[in-house]
């Protein structure tokens, strides 16, 4: 008799427990947590959404103050108009060209230098490496002005050279450092075995280290791509000629055309097309960004 009543009480307690704070608290907390996360995400995503929405509006819809994210009828004509502009193509192609050149030059030279700092042992290595790490402290302004004078004397103003050529000299100590850290983790026995087989360091670099460093190379490629695709300052300084405009200047100067009302739908359409490669790269490689920060503790 008593035993039954105890078990019954236990069962009723179990049922009642659902309403108890201890059980419902975490669930509620979790729901609240998600709500806050979603609300914050809206704040972070909104400018992007507003950009896309505006790019599909008509100039009349832009003119009247309203809060509709999307227009009643999406106007794809905005994009058609943009795609028929020669200057747009040219800017896109210029950007793609510069990014390719920078990636090619920088990746090759950076991987060579990182190889020297991680896989080779030579007298003076530590001094040179310390020197390189020291340049990390220098802000970009340190050499911006004199480089301009130098490129001016070389006749490189209004050409692509000032932006693409410095990359061939292993520009970016942070990139070298990142790659070096990765290369240090590759087992030493691999090189030693190759060395015994009579391979020289150049062959080791190309046949052994580079294939194994693919993840790190991909990481720095992504950084370089994002940095270069967004690069506004240097093109502004060096590419002051409409034929040479890259996408960032093309988009930025659309804003400076003193038209009234401001054709926001055109500006935003160009912006959307500008952002798409970034978005694609970021969505597939966001892991790299998050890992690299936790790895090196540095921005970019």
């Amino acid at each position: 008799m008593t035993s039954i009543s105890i078990s019954q009480r236990a069962r009723s307690k179990e049922a009642a427990a659902w309403f108890q704070w201890r059980t419902i608290g975490p669930i509620l907390g979790r729901v609240l947590h998600y709500a806050v996360l979603i609300w914050a995400s809206m704040f972070f995503l909104f400018p992007l959404a507003w950009m896309i929405g505006t790019s599909l509006k008509s100039i009349e819809e832009i003119g009247q103050p309203q809060l509709n994210l999307l227009p009643a009828v999406p106007r794809w004509e905005n994009y058609v108009k943009l795609l028929s502009e020669e200057s747009f193509y040219r800017a896109y192609l210029n950007s793609a060209f510069i990014v390719t050149m920078v990636l090619l030059g920088t990746i090759t030279s950076v991987s060579l230098v990182a190889f020297a700092f991680s896989r080779l042992e030579w007298k003076g290595r530590d001094v040179v490496f310390a020197l390189m790490m020291g340049t990390l402290m220098l802000p970009y302004q340190a050499t911006l002005v004199p480089q301009y004078v130098m490129f001016h004397h070389l006749g490189w103003i209004r050409t692509f050279q000032p932006i693409t050529i410095p990359g061939f000299f292993a520009g970016g100590a942070a990139l070298v450092f990142l790659l070096r850290q990765f290369m240090l983790g590759i087992p030493k026995e691999l090189d030693e075995a190759a060395m015994i087989d009579g391979a020289n360091p150049l062959q080791i670099w190309w046949h052994i280290i580079m294939p194994l460093s693919r993840p790190a190379v991909a990481t720095i490629s992504v950084f370089l791509f994002v940095g270069q695709w967004n690069n506004l300052l240097q093109p502004l300084i060096y590419l002051q000629k409409p034929e040479l405009y890259t996408m960032p200047i093309y988009v930025a100067q659309k804003n400076n055309l003193q038209e009234s009302p401001i054709p926001w739908q055109d500006i935003m359409a160009a912006s959307v097309l500008f952002v798409i490669p970034l978005l694609i790269v970021f969505i597939f490689t966001q892991r790299f960004f998050i890992e690299s920060v936790t790895l090196t503790g540095t921005k970019r």
């Binding site: 996360l37 914050a40 972070f44 950009m51 930025a252 952002v275 970034l278 966001q286 960004f289």
Partner: peptide
């Protein structure tokens, strides 16, 4: 969510999203 929170860093490096902000 982590990706969404980080996304603005990538975008804010370039002029496009800043123009959206201006608007």
């Amino acid at each position: 969510f982590r990706m969404i929170f980080y996304l603005p860093v990538i975008l804010a490096g370039g002029p496009a999203i800043l123009l959206a902000w201006r608007y």
